[in-house]
């Protein structure tokens, strides 16, 4: 039976359709559900194997990106979410979804401390829509093959990952939370614009200690066919598109 994926939607979510399409292309069955339904009936989570919070501007990024949806989730479905994770299930937050996961405290999660990292205004001061090169870390993350280079687009104004202090940053690195970093042409550390937002240590994505949660600023759902890559007209981009790899890796880890 294909894995069941819940795509969570709220006012202002706008990447739900292509995210559902990407999961389906990878072999899962995706269902889009409004957060009001989940708030009303948190137990409906139990029927799913993966929770995905897609990109967009939930509640217009009002107050700050992800804050309002994060509060709604934790206030109404916090217990169910913990139970969901205890059952070995997966959570994916893309862009605004990553912002939500960080603001719930689910990322980086136990071990590092609650609400010690945030996603803040891009250092450039503006929205950044561009493709980035990424390197996956050696972590337990169940969405990413470890130690590979990937290319995906970003599109956000608040994606700068900030740690409260250097101790928090070191703890993220040492405890294998840093599963995705922006990288230069040879995979090395980089500066703007290769690091599009000025994140500490080029961090583009985080996972929790179990590897069940992935939050990332780039959009894997926007690279599931070759013809979405900006340079496809130059050389036939061969092999599996990097975004699709992420969805497929997650499904494989579920044993599907």
């Amino acid at each position: 039976m294909p894995a069941r994926v819940l795509i969570l939607r709220a006012a202002g979510t706008n990447c739900d359709a292509e995210t559902a399409y990407a999961w389906q292309l990878a072999g899962a069955k995706a269902e889009t559900i409004h957060v009001k339904r989940l708030m009303h009936d948190p137990a409906l989570l139990r029927a799913f194997d993966v929770l995905t919070i897609p990109g967009g501007f939930s509640y217009g990024d009002d107050i700050s990106a992800g804050t309002i949806l994060a509060n709604q989730l934790m206030q109404s479905a916090g217990d169910e979410l913990l139970r969901f994770l205890e059952g070995g299930k997966l959570i994916l937050g893309i862009c605004n979804g990553f912002q939500v996961l960080v603001k719930t405290g689910l990322l980086p999660g136990p071990g590092v401390g609650s609400r010690v990292v945030t996603l803040s205004d891009n250092r450039s001061g503006s929205f950044e829509s561009r493709w980035v090169r990424l390197r996956s870390g050696i972590t337990a993350c169940r969405f990413l093959p470890p130690g590979v280079m990937l290319e995906l687009p970003v599109a956000h104004a608040q994606g700068r990952l900030l740690c409260r202090d250097d101790k928090v940053l070191q703890s993220l690195i040492h405890n294998h939370h840093v599963c995705l970093t922006y990288a230069g042409t040879g995979g090395q550390p980089c500066r703007y614009p290769d690091n599009p937002n000025g994140s500490d240590a080029d961090i583009a994505g985080l996972t929790d200690t179990t590897g069940q949660i992935l939050g990332l600023m780039p959009h894997p759902e926007r690279f599931v066919t070759t013809f979405q890559h900006p340079l496809w007209t130059r050389r036939r981009v061969e092999g599996e598109p990097d975004g699709l790899t992420i969805f497929k890796t997650a499904l494989a880890s579920l044993g599907g």
Binding site: V132, R133, S136, G147, C190
Partner: peptide, 19 residues
């Protein structure tokens, strides 16, 4: 304030081992 162009993409295959 300008807007720099990202350094070049080199990829044409699926995920590559990081150097």
């Amino acid at each position: 304030g300008g807007c720099p162009t990202s350094s070049r993409f080199c990829r044409s295959q699926g995920p590559k081992r990081a150097p």
